[in-house]
């Protein structure tokens, strides 16, 4: 005959549940404590690391880029706030804000020449030129980081990839796929002709001329009628290397 559930059995089960709960809470607490401790250790280790390599982080662009990568992997953004311990520790926030301001200056200064579209490489060269006196070296990675911080201003600073090159756009003009294709084509020689666009991209002449005219109107291109073959060339200061020297002296 089966025993029916009695009061003692119920009490026993309740007690066991309590015991389990207690144990569970204890285990959870121990685990949180452990986690907290680990986090604290991690943070102090990261701080130690940052302190120890402070100079490397400041001066060596390659090292800085790796440090950023490491931080990103563990979910720490050293640039998130200028008031955090990173800023106090490294002054790294100020570094990027300074770069940001200088990048804006360069983009504005070269706008009459390139229409607000500048090659990332060229931007870096100009930036280094401008910062000649500062001791810290600047890499393209630094430029990209500084530009990404400029986005909060909502002024339409953006890095676009055209072919193999990265271009920095500082005007609100959106470039569509057709524009991009032409700029990519121009990377070869620094210029394109209508014929070339029709042939290489298999476009109709109307489409080629329209797109080129838009780029011209936006100030991204300049015409050149001086070649002896008599064909009009459309030059793109944002992709031809000579422009980098033009603007520094202008």
């Amino acid at each position: 005959m089966r025993r029916r559930p009695g009061i003692a059995g119920l009490q026993g089960a309740a007690a066991a549940r309590d015991q389990f709960r207690l144990l569970g809470e204890n285990v959870a607490k121990i685990r949180t404590d452990l986690m907290k401790e680990q986090l604290a250790t991690f943070r102090s280790q990261l701080e130690d690391f940052a302190l120890k390599h402070k100079n490397d982080i400041r001066k060596n662009p390659a090292f800085r880029s790796q440090f950023h990568e490491m931080c990103a992997k563990v979910g720490v953004d050293p640039l998130a706030s200028n008031k955090g311990f990173w800023a106090e520790l490294l002054g790294i926030g100020d570094f990027y804000y300074e770069l940001g301001v200088q990048i804006v200056e360069i983009c504005l200064g070269t706008r009459p020449h390139n229409g607000g579209l500048i090659n990332l490489q060229e931007l870096c060269t100009l930036l280094r030129h401008k910062r000649k006196t500062s001791r810290e070296a600047v890499s393209e990675d630094d430029c990209l980081r500084a530009i990404s911080k400029l986005k909060v201003l909502g002024s339409g600073f953006e890095v676009i990839s055209v072919g193999k090159k990265k271009l920095v756009r500082s005007v609100p003009t959106e470039l569509n796929k057709d524009h991009n294709e032409i700029i990519e084509l121009a990377q070869g020689q620094g210029y394109v002709t209508v014929d070339e666009v029709e042939r290489r991209l298999s476009w109709t002449s109307g489409r080629a001329i329209d797109t080129l005219e838009t780029l011209l109107d936006e100030g991204f291109a300049m015409i050149d009628d001086g070649h002896r073959d008599g064909k009009r060339r459309y030059w793109f200061p944002c992709v031809s290397s000579i422009s980098s020297t033009v603007v520094t002296d202008a």
Binding site: Y191, M222, I223, D224, D225, G226, H227, R233, W235, P237, S240, I242, S243, T245, V246, D249, A250
Partner: peptide, 12 residues
């Protein structure tokens, strides 16, 4: 000579 002197479109 300034660099722009070598950039063809400046002559058009």
């Amino acid at each position: 000579l300034p660099p722009f002197f070598n950039y063809p479109p400046y002559f058009t």
